[in-house]
Design a protein around this nucleic acid. Sequence first.
DNA 1: ACATAACAGTTATCATATAAACTGTTATTA
DNA 2: TAATAACAGTTTATATGATAACTGTTATGT
Lengths: 153, 153
Amino acid sequence: MTKVTDLDRLNNTGVRRLINVSEAIIKTADRFFAKFGVTTAQYDILAILKYSEKKLTQSDLGINRVVSRSNITGILDRLERVGMAKREGSADDRRVKYISITKKGLDLIEKVESKYFDNVKKLVWFLDEKDKKELVEILDRLERGLKRGENDL
Amino acid sequence: MTKVTDLDRLNNTGVRRLINVSEAIIKTADRFFAKFGVTTAQYDILAILKYSEKKLTQSDLGINRVVSRSNITGILDRLERVGMAKREGSADDRRVKYISITKKGLDLIEKVESKYFDNVKKLVWFLDEKDKKELVEILDRLERGLKRGENDL
DNA sequence: ACATAACAGTTATCATATAAACTGTTATTA
DNA sequence: TAATAACAGTTTATATGATAACTGTTATGT
């Protein structure tokens, strides 16, 4: 049983701070998209659908968003209900459903997209190129730490 | 209607990366605590209760965790159900309930805490002092960006 | 004092997340 | 080919989050 040190607590505080800022960003985005009648998850799915080169299945969407298949089901249910996306069965493989964005979904993205990017610009306004580079490096190291920890968690 | 530029997309990619790493950390923590039969939110509440100097009300807990009062209700319901926390009405103010951690809750923290801090240590292993300092500065700037953006979101 | 505002906690609804069990389909392999 | 494994999607259970409506209590202000 290792003893908990002050350094341990300091490390934890730092990680918490990262998570808190990240969650604050997420919540701001949630509020932003809510004003247009969609959730962030729904908008993400629509944007992926719009910019995808190839036809996407539900599993493809799951991989892109790191969301499990079961959650995709519900998100698509709601998007379908409001007519912004639709499912189509595949002829090749009857297990598969191809998902596409509708006119209404495209309209929404058209209306929201540039405003969204403006907000992101405001968010990173205080970061210069050096900051951005450093941030990416630090995030890389944190990911390595995550992989390193996973073995005996 | 502003045009979306490549720089806009790059900014967005960077912010997404921050969020993704942060979410990966959160999910790792969730899995860790799940092995001991609690959720991260429940563990957080227990730890706050253990280390608090003064008696805490549900509203106090809400402020600490940046969670709304309504969600605290549910989290405490579950902690009470498994006997790790308990509510006690206040005599001064009959609206208020004081929350305390039980022996069973303390036992859980005792069992989990040092392992948890070991995992945090592994996570930040690749960060030196300079990295940590820079990260905090960048997070500060991002928070300023958040405040800056909020006005016309 | 009485009306009103502010507050603490609960409840309800909706969206999302994980995990596990399940259905139907396709691929593998003995 | 028949049994089995792998896969795509759905469903269900549980936990959490945000909001808004609601109850009861306390504080305020005229």
